[in-house]
Design a protein around this nucleic acid. Structure first.
Lengths: 127, 127
DNA sequence: CACTCTAGCAACACATGAAGTTACATGAGA
DNA sequence: TCTCATGTAACTTCATGTGTTGCTAGAGTG
């Protein structure tokens, strides 16, 4: 599949797609080929890759909208609050990643197909 | 204490302080008085207010930097991923708030005083 | 060999939201 | 009535993520 086609499907831009896919390629989840007939191909088993793997392949972007605005401070109040918060945030981050680590792409794939079937046979829901 | 003085201590602007303190006032944690001799006064017991209370008084701003970019979508893949993620995010949010709910301002206050003592008697640490 | 199609990449432009700023109104004491 | 303070709206600035353009390089076609 070309970046162009993916971008259309995702309502975004081919360059954005390449940026994201670049991370996935570095980790061997996808493969890309240049030139005529080129594009992206899957190169991993869906049941061996998790949301956590994807997150980390994407360079582990910031998870939280809150947190210390500076690591070092002269202010003892700020220090006390930072310590209290960063302990919680670290624990919660670990939990979140652990949960993401249990969600495989295969599971999402299966979920998608279930939704697809449901959409094509909506009458079943009305019984 | 005036917004002006607080702003200096926090390296910010009096108006920003008023915006934040406004939330705390609405919940009765602080009291403000206008005019000469006015400013902010504490009006709660520090051991009865938690970080979670503060967070909610500040109108519960976004916690996560990740998440659904749109609630409704036509895309079944997006739907599947959103469902998987929002389940995790909801659980993790609950955990985070629970933890914040256990951190009282009194505890932070005590922690601060401990740091203050340590700073004034640093020789103790070298024994 | 020229042409087209594709990814790779850097640099720039735009959008969004948080934080900071200005200006003015209101209320309280001197 | 003057000064000092909060209350608030409107505007500006800044940071970050997203989108866009322009160019390079590689790969197949005719």
């Amino acid at each position: 599949m070309t970046s162009e086609a993916l971008a259309r499907a995702l309502n975004t831009n081919p360059v954005v797609v390449r940026r994201l896919m670049g991370g996935l390629r570095k980790h061997g989840y996808v493969h890309s080929e240049k030139g005529y007939g080129g594009g992206w191909t899957l190169s991993c088993q869906l049941d061996r890759v998790t949301l956590r793997d994807i997150y980390e392949a994407l360079d582990a972007p910031r998870l939280f909208a809150i947190g210390n605005r500076s690591e070092k401070t002269e202010c003892l109040v700020e220090e006390a609050v930072n310590d209290a918060m960063s302990g919680v945030l670290a624990d919660v981050t670990a939990q979140l990643l652990a949960r993401f680590g249990q969600i495989t792409l295969a599971a999402l794939h299966a979920d998608f197909h279930q939704r697809l079937a449901a959409r094509h046979a909506p009458a079943m829901l009305c019984k």
